[in-house]
Simulated assay, not measured.
Amino acid sequence: MAEINVTPLVDVMLVLLIIFMVTAPLLVAGVAVDLPESRAETLDQDMEPVQLSIDRDGSLTIDDTPVAESDLPSRLAAIAAQPAPPEGRRIYLRADRSLDYGRVMRVMGELNRAGLNRVALVSVGEQAR
């Protein structure tokens, strides 16, 4: 047989190409991220989202109404009990950049416990440096 069969070679190369395409995005070890700034466009939606804010002092407000931390689970349960669109109620979480990461995660844990899983973290647009 004087001809070389290239079909197995092409098959192996395509499998390797797929493996590299899948694993390459996962190999990024560290990315410098500044969460409060973003170029993301605003989300289109029909219902007005619930705005949950945490200021520099850790004070909580829901739609511009101050809420004590001890009252947060009951307030979130009341919000979750209200009628919502089929995809779920969207919550906008605004947190001051100087807050402890654990503080924000505790609030997100309360949101998850109440069944409010569609949480969007709000940031400001990218500013010129």
Rank of each mutant, 00 (worst) to 15 (best):
V50T: 11
V119I: 15
V6D: 04
E87K: 09
S74M: 10
L111R: 01
R103G: 01
L99A: 03
R129L: 12
V28C: 04
V119D: 00
R90Q: 11
G109Y: 02
R89E: 08
T23H: 09
D11G: 11
N112L: 09
V107C: 02
D34A: 07
N117K: 14
D63R: 03
L14N: 08
V6R: 03
Q45H: 06
V50W: 01
V104F: 04
G125P: 05
R113E: 13
Y92P: 00
P73C: 10
P86V: 08
I4K: 13
M13R: 03
E37T: 13
V31A: 15
L111N: 06
E48Y: 04
I62N: 04
P8D: 05
A32L: 14
V6T: 13
A2W: 06
V15Q: 10
A77D: 11
F20S: 13
P85Y: 02
R39D: 02
A40Y: 00
L72E: 08
S59H: 14
G30S: 12
D71P: 07
V50R: 01
L116T: 06
M47I: 10
I19R: 08
A81G: 01
D57C: 01
A32W: 14
L99Y: 09
L35G: 05
V22A: 15
S38C: 07
A114W: 07
I19Q: 05
R106L: 10
P83C: 03
I62T: 05
A77Q: 14
V124R: 00
E87A: 15
D46Q: 12
N112H: 12
V104D: 02
R94D: 01
Q45E: 07
M47F: 11
E69V: 12
E69M: 11
V104Q: 11
P8N: 05
R129Y: 11
E69Q: 14
Q82D: 09
L111P: 01
Y92M: 09
N5I: 07
L52W: 05
I91E: 00
S38Q: 02
E41S: 09
L26V: 07
A29D: 08
E37G: 05
N112W: 04
R56Q: 15
L14E: 11
I4A: 14
A78Q: 10
L52Q: 02
F20D: 12
M47R: 13
S74I: 09
E41F: 00
S59F: 15
P86D: 13
I4P: 04
A120I: 06
R39W: 00
L72R: 12
V122C: 01
A81C: 03
D63S: 09
R89K: 14
A32M: 12
